[in-house]
Design a protein around this nucleic acid. Sequence first.
DNA 1: TGTCCACGTAGACGATTGTATACCTGATGC
DNA 2: GCATCAGGTATACAATCGTCTACGTGGACA
Lengths: 242, 242
Amino acid sequence: MAKNSDGGRGQDRTPERVPSGRQKLMEAALELAATTRSLASLGLREVARHAGLNPNTFYRHFKDFDDLGVAMLDELGTELRAGLREARMRPAQEGFKLSDFSNPAEGLAQAQALARESVGLVLDFVMDHREAYTVGIRELHGTSPVMRKAMQGLLDGIAVDMTEDLLGVLMLPAVSHEELLAVARVIVRQMVFFSMDYLEQPSRQADIKREAERFILLLFWGAIAARAPELLAAAKLKFPTI
Amino acid sequence: MAKNSDGGRGQDRTPERVPSGRQKLMEAALELAATTRSLASLGLREVARHAGLNPNTFYRHFKDFDDLGVAMLDELGTELRAGLREARMRPAQEGFKLSDFSNPAEGLAQAQALARESVGLVLDFVMDHREAYTVGIRELHGTSPVMRKAMQGLLDGIAVDMTEDLLGVLMLPAVSHEELLAVARVIVRQMVFFSMDYLEQPSRQADIKREAERFILLLFWGAIAARAPELLAAAKLKFPTI
DNA sequence: TGTCCACGTAGACGATTGTATACCTGATGC
DNA sequence: GCATCAGGTATACAATCGTCTACGTGGACA
């Protein structure tokens, strides 16, 4: 009775091939929200119409637009998070080794390559899921407290993943776990803006990519400089220019 | 004919004391948008009702909600920008001097004090204009291209101001104007998130303030480390812990 | 004194909205 | 073989919406 929003039963049961109503509604909502307006301000009838369904069908699957939004975010959010983790693991298996900063020049060069790889990864994902990204960020600062919390949770989760992965690959000297997490959260949030620019200014994509890399390196440089500045003197020449 | 949105004539002409319709509408829209929904999804009648005016009065002053939004942003945006500039000038007159980094320890300490002052400034402003800030950030990633551009322009303008002011106060070694501008833009954008946290988590305000200061210092550390790492070795002890 | 004009009001229009009630259908379980 | 039920439909209703046309002010200005 109070238990609503039937948690995606349709997906569990069907072989997940047929678009089956619920999916149609989510896709319609995504398309409409990306091109027209915010999720919360979408019309129930509008979405149903765009999905080719009867308005009342909406109630069969969702009780709210918050409900629908959370469902969409669960789906795409876990996809993003898993994609990022997997892709972050890939270079570690291929060519990367644990980079010990006892050889600063080499370690920092690897850090740069890793930053470049990660930035490209995120921006590619954003390009591939333009609609979902647009809507998601809209909700990040949007009206619905439910969606805001959910989006913030997703971003924080990504930051936690990134921290763990980085701890496995990089061995930063004297940078604590908490410090690294704080840096990761800052990076994730900044990537929100870089991604926006990337989508909105296709002609500047190469520049934006470089700016994002540079920002990340700057943060790590700063973190290291605060703890072990002597390591940086040797690697000065390696820092990318402007 | 095509020239619409009469640019605030009502304000110019009246002694600016009487709330005079146009102002009432803007205030009503601000309150409703802050508590209810996005600007673009507001009802024309709803706003007029909340302002105690006839629905059609809206047309006398604005043609759009974009129109109203831009008017509000002009008003509050210039207030914010001027307030920040003025407040950034204040410490320079009182106690601060041009900090030459030829004496690194002292210069970095001053940079830290300046970062603390600036962060406090922004967060105070956000607290004082909670509604406007909330609505503005909503529009930053919102549906209306007009409002998005306007908000992005405001943030970039603040970044430009900050760059100029910093160039006048700090003398960073070997950090070019463009680099400093890029850093300023990143800081401004990150402050959007810090401000959100600050408003949404009153119990963590002190922590958030410190995190923001630390982030800014980290960036400057990084920028300096990339150019003149030898300067940092001497100042290592001054960096704030965690 | 007469005439604009900016500002605000009044009433009405068709369109669209969210939601309630009722009916249909195919699969599932006993 | 029959009941149950999730998924989808049809119809209807009051409420709200944006916008149109028309009218009423008070002050500015000639």
